[in-house]
Design a protein around this nucleic acid. Sequence first.
DNA 1: GCCAACGTTGGC
DNA 2: GCCAACGTTGGC
Length: 149
Amino acid sequence: MAKWLVKTEPSECSIDDFAQKPDASIPWDGVRNYQARNFLRQMAEGDQVFIYHASCKHIGIAGIVRVTKSAYPDPAQFDAESPYHDPKSTHEQPRWQAVDMQFVKKLPKLISLDRLKNMDGLEDLPLVRKGNRLSVMPVSEDEWQRILG
DNA sequence: GCCAACGTTGGC
DNA sequence: GCCAACGTTGGC
């Protein structure tokens, strides 16, 4: 079972939004980057995912969710009213995918970006590399355990 | 296919 | 709010 990390602005969707509806599957949509999309496509039901809070006061990994539905066409791409609308996308050949995710747990204490940067064994994690903007990335089992450890 | 211009991300 | 880094767009 693979492990992942996704970035989010907590003002948009935070770990608390998942925690408030622990039984609900929440769509993870709006990914509009090809590399991130390709990782979304690889997600399988049951995969665990770190929720990373970005562009906010307390930056870092805030909790864990799991994939409840693997990739399907992101409805927002067809919605002309949506900020995620993509006029070049068609139902026949949708460009963008979404997955559904469900709450697993909130970490007792947020793991800050600063701590992640100073942790051994995370050198290959795109998150801590300078200038990296990838919003969906794989996390190896070893990296996952080091982060939780 | 190149690359300059532009837009976005995201830490600080 | 600033700005470095990066991705995308579009003219040529």
